[in-house]
């Protein structure tokens, strides 16, 4: 007997014979879900976006509300002092219009090695979805977000969150995603509580997370 057959046989010995798939799916659908799908009123758009900004800042990310038209200037200010920035495909050219002349834009073409990424000072991206309740940004690594390593290895991550990205709560945010894609959920800069359960920001992931909330 293979390990697979044996494990399945042990499970059936413990549980009784397998039920019909339709019966299992009906039992699954009947699971009581009396919790709230959102803890905040999704109709109150301004409140939801403000809540996102407040909760993201709780993690000691830098959060700035910015009118859409002021994005290029705000981005330029935020990346001041960064010599080399990597910018994934799909980031609007307009965002980069006012970058300081001392800043070089690097493209992931051909793809950079991890060592090369480590020599980059920061990354500028958009996002797929954000969650107001938890102050979380979700990347699905589609357009304007780049492959996962781009937002991981450089030490500074600037992310632009548009108001329409912000979902009130986890349930709504997950429902907007395509599960076949890889995802990264980001709630503040990397952190650890491994020494005396005291939170310290800045471990292996980007030590600085700068969020521009636009629109």
């Amino acid at each position: 007997m293979t390990a697979r057959e044996e494990i399945l046989a042990r499970i059936r010995a413990a549980n009784g014979p397998a039920r019909e798939p339709t019966e299992i799916d009906a039992a699954y659908a009947a699971i009581p879900r009396d919790y709230r799908r959102a803890h905040h009123d999704s109709e109150q758009r301004d409140d939801i976006v403000a809540l996102f900004a407040e909760r993201a800042a709780d993690y000691r990310a830098t959060v700035e509300p910015v009118p859409e038209a002021d994005l290029p200037a705000a981005i330029a200010r935020a990346v001041t002092g960064k010599a080399r920035l990597i910018v994934p495909d799909g980031v609007p050219e307009a965002w980069l219009a006012e970058l300081p002349s001392a800043t070089t834009i690097v493209r992931d073409e051909p793809p950079l090695s991890a060592r090369e990424l480590d020599a980059i000072d920061g990354v500028v991206t958009g996002c797929a979805v954000a969650i107001a309740e938890t102050g979380t940004i979700i990347l699905d690594h589609g357009p304007a977000q780049g492959r996962r390593a781009l937002t991981l290895v450089p030490d500074f991550h600037l992310v632009v969150v548009r108001a329409d990205h912000v979902a009130p709560d986890i349930a709504d945010a997950l429902a907007r995603l395509d599960p076949s894609r890889p995802h990264t959920l980001i709630s503040g800069p990397s952190a650890t509580s491994d020494i005396e359960l005291i939170r310290v920001e800045g471990v292996h992931g980007p030590r600085n997370l700068h969020i521009l909330v636009s629109g």
């Binding site: 879900r33 919790y35 799908r37 909760r55 709780d58 993690y59 969650i131 309740e133 938890t134 102050g135 979380t136 996962r148 986890i170 349930a171 997950l174 429902a175 599960p179 076949s180 894609r181 890889p182 995802h183 990264t184 959920l185 980001i186 709630s187 503040g188 800069p189 990397s190 952190a191 509580s193 992931g205």
Partner: peptide, 27 residues
């Protein structure tokens, strides 16, 4: 969809945060 339950339960119970800094999901 079950992640909507467990991603609410786990971080608050373990590190006492609304959400942990990083979650990676891949298929």
């Amino acid at each position: 969809r079950d992640l909507e339950v467990f991603l609410a339960l786990l971080p608050r119970s373990s590190t006492a945060e609304r959400m942990n800094p990083y979650t990676t999901i891949w298929s």
